[in-house]
Design a binder for these strands. Structure first.
Lengths: 186, 186
DNA sequence: GCCGGATCGTTCGGATCCGTACGATAGCCA
DNA sequence: TGGCTATCGTACGGATCCGAACGATCCGGC
């Protein structure tokens, strides 16, 4: 019924991750109803979350391509570096949690950053299970150069929104996080 | 100056990806100023975007753990399956764009899904460079089972927000996407 | 002192993930 | 018809990414 013999241009395609405009949204709803039948679906929720992922991916790509790539830095590598930069000597499990990656992933990322001489692993005398992370002078120097560039692009993106919108936006995002992780404080 | 001998609990750590409450935000600003010096930084933008990534990660984890995992399905595999489910016979480059992944990544994901008998590759007679994707009956059956579960959790998460907030939220997310990708339409 | 349970970071296997290079095909134009 | 260029999907190398299992270490009670 749809798109079997017609080639849809990418801009006109609405999916879980892409839902550019209203017209395509309606078409997607119609296409979905053909597949899911009479089941009651929450299209507003699906649309909101698909835009959430789309925005996160777009911003991440933009920052990677415009800032990180010329320093031969991956997204995760930069985030880890930033965390350790701000919280010098932090234990690995806290770094992993702050960077929103697993401990297993952090091990590999630190290995990469260590090989490049940007980060250093350091044992803890009081608890020899722990490993603390620190930036080398080269790592510090690199962050002092990259982060202002990074934040400038962040500012350029968010600057398109009014100050009040940014505040509301940030609060709603936190509401979403709280809705997922369950709440105790605040 | 910070956290060298004190172990910060994860909830109290504010980073690029995590900025739970105001107090920690202020601490992070202070810690950052110690590192970046007098450089003018846009903390509001950094905070908004860190919450964007945090929300996206949280929602993605929640949907993966509560819905996808019990069907032995990865996030990307599910998104690809969903796109092909709705737009039957779509060409691979459009599927990749809709799923927000590269063509190279799609090749590998399709290989995995094909090995599980959920998706089928199909040549195009008019243009033999093209490869069209279709769901097998098993794939269709699986999506008819999974997607309602998936959407139910989506609805549960977004349901915490008022209807008006959802509309505003969705629109702002799209503004962010447009701010990044540059705009012509709409 | 010692030992069972909890927690640390790492290893392992497997699935993404992407930029680049490549072979195959299509379409244009002389 | 031939060749030039653009575009298609794929192979490859390298970096994430994570759940599960593991050895090392700490700490509680005895």
């Amino acid at each position: 019924m749809f798109a079997s013999e017609r080639s849809w241009p990418p801009e006109a395609i609405a999916t879980l991750a892409r839902m550019p405009d209203r017209h395509t949204l309606e078409e997607t709803e119609r296409a979905m109803k053909d597949h899911v039948g009479a089941l009651p679906l929450d299209f507003a929720a699906a649309n909101a979350l698909s835009n959430l992922f789309r925005a996160a991916n777009a911003v991440r790509s933009e920052l990677t391509n415009r800032v990180l790539r010329q320093h031969d830095m991956t997204w995760t590598g930069f985030v880890v570096l930033w965390v350790v930069w701000i919280w010098d000597g932090m234990e690995t499990r806290h770094v992993a949690e702050s960077a929103d990656i697993s401990k297993a992933t952090l091990t590999g990322v630190v290995k990469t950053l260590e090989a490049r001489g940007l980060i250093a692993r350091e044992g803890d005398d009081n608890d020899r299970r722990l490993v603390r992370l620190r930036l080398t002078p080269e790592g510090i120097s690199l962050m002092e150069q990259i982060y202002p560039e990074f934040n400038a692009v962040e500012s350029e993106i968010i600057g398109q929104l009014s100050e009040r919108k940014v505040a509301t936006f940030t609060k709603t995002l936190r509401d979403v996080v709280n809705a997922v992780e369950g709440r105790d404080e605040d």
